[in-house]
């Protein structure tokens, strides 16, 4: 019997089980964020007065965070490339840079939220702010989870172990990036 883990060997669906699971996670996440964003859009269209609330968000902080996530996605895909060529040490370095990007994103978010809460805009300040904190908070939790998982995978990758996981966390990270790509215009640009 083979000692290779099932996550790297089974191909009944045409791709390794670990990647199959990653795509299923992404599919379920589409419903979580899709439902939330669809609700936000329909409420926003029904409440033109929310534009005045959205004007209080910090566009430049949102833009900086978009840049940070796009750059961290570049590091994630370069880590995948390094893992594909068997260079675990480089993949680990790039994954840690990706995690640094995620941490920077959370720090900028904390700075933003501190200013907004100090200005009196809290979860219960109205429909816009309820959606703002819920959607951005849920996204932030996904970033935090991604950073933690990535650091564990980087530790394995540095020893040239479980390199297939580098691609899986990369796919997840790019999805988190895509969600933010849509949150940015919805929460910061459309006023």
């Amino acid at each position: 019997m083979s000692s290779r883990p099932i996550a790297t060997s089974r191909t009944a669906a045409g791709l390794p089980t670990a990647r199959l699971v990653t795509w299923w996670v992404i599919a379920s996440e589409i419903f979580i964020f899709g439902g939330l964003l669809a609700s936000y859009v329909m409420h926003r269209l029904g409440h033109p007065e929310w534009a005045a609330q959205a004007a209080h968000t910090h566009t430049w902080a949102g833009a900086l965070n978009t840049f940070v996530l796009l750059t961290s996605s570049l590091f994630a895909v370069l880590a995948h490339k390094a893992a594909g060529s068997g260079d675990g040490a480089r993949a680990a370095r790039l994954l840690r840079l990706t995690a640094l990007g995620g941490t920077t994103f959370l720090c900028v978010k904390a700075f933003e939220w501190t200013h907004e809460i100090k200005a009196g805009f809290v979860l219960s300040s109205g429909g816009f702010w309820s959606f703002y904190y819920t959607v951005a908070g849920l996204h932030g939790l996904h970033v935090l989870a991604g950073v933690i998982i990535m650091l564990f995978i980087a530790a394995d990758a540095a020893r040239n172990e479980e390199l297939q996981r580098v691609e899986c966390i990369g796919i997840y990270w790019h999805f988190v990036d895509i969600i933010w790509i849509f949150l940015f215009p919805l929460l910061y640009i459309a006023r």
Binding site: A13, W23, I26, I30, F31, A38, S39, M42, H43
Partner: peptide, 28 residues
């Protein structure tokens, strides 16, 4: 990826649009 991955993602997005179309008139 195998083509079914793209189909899976497209179907999920389409269902979100169905949700929007079904609920939006009552909300908007």
């Amino acid at each position: 990826e195998p083509r079914w991955v793209a189909y899976l993602l497209i179907i999920c997005l389409a269902l979100v649009i169905v949700l929007f179309a079904g609920v939006a008139p009552d909300v908007m």
